[in-house]
Design a protein around this nucleic acid. Structure first.
Length: 354
DNA sequence: TTCATGCTGTGAACCTGAAG
DNA sequence: CTTCAGGTTCACAGCATGAA
């Protein structure tokens, strides 16, 4: 672990890397556009395969899935910039999305993400649990908790990937295709705790598996222990608890999960690489660092449809909701899903890597 | 078209174990 | 000892599907 890098930043992609990737993507996209006609599916697939190969060649130290992942993120970011500006691409023409990479979307109904909390009525549920309810199990007959197993960091990252591809609510597919070691019920349960954790971000006191972001390295052990304490960084790293006490501004927790999951939606790519960061209450989500990868969601601002920055947990949640609306309105979510789905089909390694 | 059934997601209660 | 985090389970609601 490089001591210079904030722990929430995995150090895998630096801004210059991303700039190079963008440049290469734009260059090869434009170059191939002159050769490949619209609707040429094989050509499009080959095109993206070629671009990934070029990127892989440029960054031989990276795993292929890392390259693919970043490629998708950058494409989505560019797409979002195009959507926002309405006048054209930020970095040259890129038509990777509008035609679904030249491939049909296998299941358009996939865009069923319902991120709006409260969209489904819960009235009548709340009074369900009755007072004086007898214990679920007699003390002597409590079921064995043999299935209890803490989520590993890897499982959580797979969960985040699945969340990014299938969206919130499709636990079945996330379980089936990503977190294969967990049932859909377990995934759902984990998600419940995960989102609750995000909502109560300001009150966090202990490290949790849910603090692991998709691109985070693993600077910690699975539990609070001295095992990861030595990794605490001077000035802006972790403290022994993994969280800052409210009022302490000298240490910065890594709480970028949702930011990464929804980075193309929540973060304004055009403002990436600034040193501004979003905050939850007293705690900073995205640690401002000069060397922050744009797509990490660590340096970009939280943006909602009206470009408002979150400054309180409630505002943050509201922004998330508005961002979801924005995504729905502009079909960004569907486009992103399409990207991943296409990648999953075009590049076999993708499935193997995730 | 209507109804029954099964599946799945959601929110909450409850439990265990670890940290404070 | 208290508080907190994580996991399981349950009740309910919504949706899809098939039969009448």
């Amino acid at each position: 672990m490089a001591a210079q890098v904030a722990p929430m930043i995995n150090g895998e992609w630096c801004p210059s890397d991303i700039a190079v990737m963008k440049s290469l993507i734009v260059k090869h996209n434009n170059m191939n556009n002159t050769i490949i006609g619209a609707g040429d599916n094989d050509g499009m697939n080959s095109k993206h395969q070629d671009i990934v190969d070029v990127l892989q060649a440029r960054f031989p130290m990276k795993e292929k899935h890392q390259v693919i992942d970043m490629y998708v993120d950058i494409v989505v970011e560019m797409m979002q910039c195009q959507e926002k500006s309405g006048t054209g691409p930020m970095m040259g023409g890129i038509d990777l999305v509008n035609d679904n990479f030249g491939m049909p979307v296998e299941d358009p109904s996939m865009n069923n993400m319902d991120m709006i909390p409260g969209a489904r009525t819960t009235e009548g549920k709340r009074a369900r649990k009755t007072v004086g309810k007898p214990p679920r199990w007699p003390l002597a007959a409590q079921p064995e908790r043999h299935n209890t197993r803490f989520w590993s960091t890897e499982e959580h990252k797979l969960f985040l990937r699945g969340l990014r591809v299938y969206g919130r609510g499709d636990w079945k597919n996330i379980s089936r295709h990503f977190v294969k070691t967990r049932t859909s019920v377990q995934v759902s349960s984990h998600a419940q705790k995960y989102f609750r954790r995000l909502e109560s971000a300001a009150a966090r006191q202990r490290y949790s598996i849910n603090d692991v972001g998709l691109y985070d390295a693993e600077p910690w052990m699975a539990r609070n222990s001295a095992g990861w304490e030595p990794l605490a960084l001077a000035g802006g790293g972790y403290n022994a608890n993994g969280y800052v006490t409210r009022g302490q501004a000298s240490t910065q927790p890594a709480m970028n999960n949702l930011a990464q999951v929804w980075s193309p939606v929540l973060y304004n790519g055009s403002q990436a690489n600034t040193s501004q960061a979003a905050w939850i209450g007293d705690q900073q989500i995205g640690h401002a660092e000069a060397a922050t990868p744009a797509m990490e969601g660590t340096s970009g601002n939280f943006v909602s449809g009206d470009q408002q920055e979150a400054s309180t947990p409630q505002q943050w949640m509201n922004n998330m909701q508005r961002s979801t609306q924005l995504k729905n309105d502009e079909d960004l979510g569907e486009a992103q899903e399409s990207l991943f789905r296409v990648f999953a089909r075009v590049i076999p390694e993708f499935e193997a890597c995730i």
